[in-house]
Each structure stands twice: as C-alpha cells, then as structure tokens.
C-alpha cells in the first residue's frame, strides 16, 4: 500500500523534473533571452533575497489572510442557504433564477463596480473571494442535501426521529461528502480569483507582487510569484484533502469521489 503511493508520487514528479532540467539547460546554453525566461539561478537569488527581507512572507500572509477570511465568510453564507434551499423546493423556486444569473458572472467582472463602491481597500478583495467561493459551496451543499436518500429518511421516521434529529443524524452526514467537495472547489476558485483581484487593484499580496515586479522589469520575481501561487495552492488543496479524508472515513471503503464538479 505504502509502496504503491510512493510509486504514484514518483510518477508525478517526472514531468516537473524534466521541465526544470530543460529550464536549466536552456538558460545555460542561452537558448532564449534571459529577460523573457529568467534563469533558475536568478529566480533562486530573488527567492533568497525576498525571504531574507520578509517581503515574500508579507505578501503571502496577506493573500492567505484574504483567502481564509473570504472563504470563511462565504461558507457561513453558502452553507445555511444551501441547506435551506435543499430542504425546501419552494425556497428553490424563489431563489433559483437570481442565483443562476449571478453564477454566470465571473467574480472579476464585478471588480470595477466593487472598487467604485468600496475603494481599493480590503473589501473588494474579500468580496471577490466570497463571490468566487460562494457558488461551489452553495451548489454542492444544495445538491448533497437534496439528493439525500429518502429511504434513509424513512428509517429515521420509523424510529420516531424529530425533524431536527433527522437533519442532524441523517441529512447532514449524507450531504457532508458533497459539502466538502464544494468547499475544496471553492478554496481553489477563491485563490485564483484573489490573485486576479490583486493584479487589478492592490498594494499588497502575491498578485500585487507580480504586477509590481512586471512594472519594475523584474521577470525573476514574476516567475517566483507564479511558482509561489502554484505551490501554495497545491499545499492548501493537499491539506484540505487530508482533512476531508479524516472527516468522512467511511468514504474510503466506497471508492472516493473527490474532485468532481
């Protein structure tokens, strides 16, 4: 079992290794302009410098804070609403068209409006994250609650469970895997949308760091920024997946269905 996972992890490392080798070799042989693709040495130097003076850490922490604050707020909105709409078809009738409309507007398209309303402070960024995260959590919660097997609900009825108990002991655990899938998707979306928002209007954060480096003609820092985004995104996702597996241990035996949707 352990050997299997090690082999799998190794397989996934081949392609990055090849890319890095090509990068090193190409830079060494001066196969391309070092301004367009900065050599790995320069990017490493930028990394050491920005780590040493704390600039990278500052931008990363600011971005992470925005993602988590926005994610939390979105969850607090989306989860109860998803449950309410999932449990009542009438609620669904009222809300469906409006939500469908908002769903099709990319969060970044709202950025100019948000800047107009709130200035370029923290609010537009938080709202972008909320907008990006809300729908995956809401829709997956809704789906999870609405598709709870009525046969299981009937079991609760046959044991005389109250409505609250039925929700807590049957509907909620049945919906949990779906809710977690939504949260995981939302986390990914929020990260992407945030960096976008920071590229448009910000004075801190990873997105801002990239934009600033572009204006200062520092491609090494741009590459560093992109790599940081990718690595952080993967780490967050990996961490969340771990937590998910702990939260729904019964799914392991059922052939996990993560990453759908």
């Amino acid at each position: 079992m352990l050997k299997m996972t090690t082999t799998k992890v190794l397989r996934g490392l081949y392609l990055p290794a090849v890319i890095i080798l090509v990068w090193i070799a190409g830079s060494w042989l001066a196969a391309w302009n070092s301004y367009i693709i900065p050599p790995p040495g320069e990017v490493l130097a930028a990394l050491t410098k920005l780590l040493a003076d704390g600039v990278l850490a500052k931008h990363v922490l600011v971005s992470l804070y925005r993602v988590f604050a926005g994610f939390l707020a979105a969850f607090l909105l989306a989860f109860p609403l998803g449950v309410a709409v999932g449990m009542s078809s009438r609620c669904n009738d009222y809300l469906q068209p409006t939500l469908e409309f908002i769903r099709h507007v990319p969060p970044l398209a709202a950025m100019p409006m948000l800047i107009l309303w709130f200035g370029i402070g923290e609010w537009p960024k938080l709202l972008i994250v909320i907008l990006a995260t809300f729908f995956p959590i809401f829709l997956n919660t809704l789906h999870g609650v609405a598709s709870c097997d009525v046969k299981l609900v009937e079991v609760g009825k046959s044991f005389g469970l109250s409505k609250g108990e039925t929700f807590r002991r049957i509907v909620f655990p049945a919906a949990l895997p779906s809710v977690l899938v939504g949260m995981r998707l939302g986390l990914g979306y929020s990260w992407r949308a945030l960096v976008g928002a920071e590229l448009i209007a910000a004075s801190s954060g990873i997105g801002y760091m990239i934009l600033d480096a572009e204006q200062l003609a520092r491609p090494d820092v741009v590459v560093l920024g992109i790599l940081t985004i990718g690595v952080l995104g993967s780490l967050i996702d990996g961490l969340f997946l771990r937590l998910t597996k702990l939260a729904i241990p019964w799914k392991e035996s059922e052939e996990a269905d993560y990453g759908r949707g």
Partner: peptide
C-alpha cells in the same frame, strides 16, 4: 413501539 426492517438494508453508510 413498532420497528421496521426494509427490503434494502438502509444502513447509514457513515456509521
């Protein structure tokens, strides 16, 4: 008290 056993087991998969 009336208890019911269904045709399908209807066990809670998470328990």
């Amino acid at each position: 008290r009336i208890g019911m056993v269904f045709q399908e087991h209807r066990l809670m998969p998470w328990l």
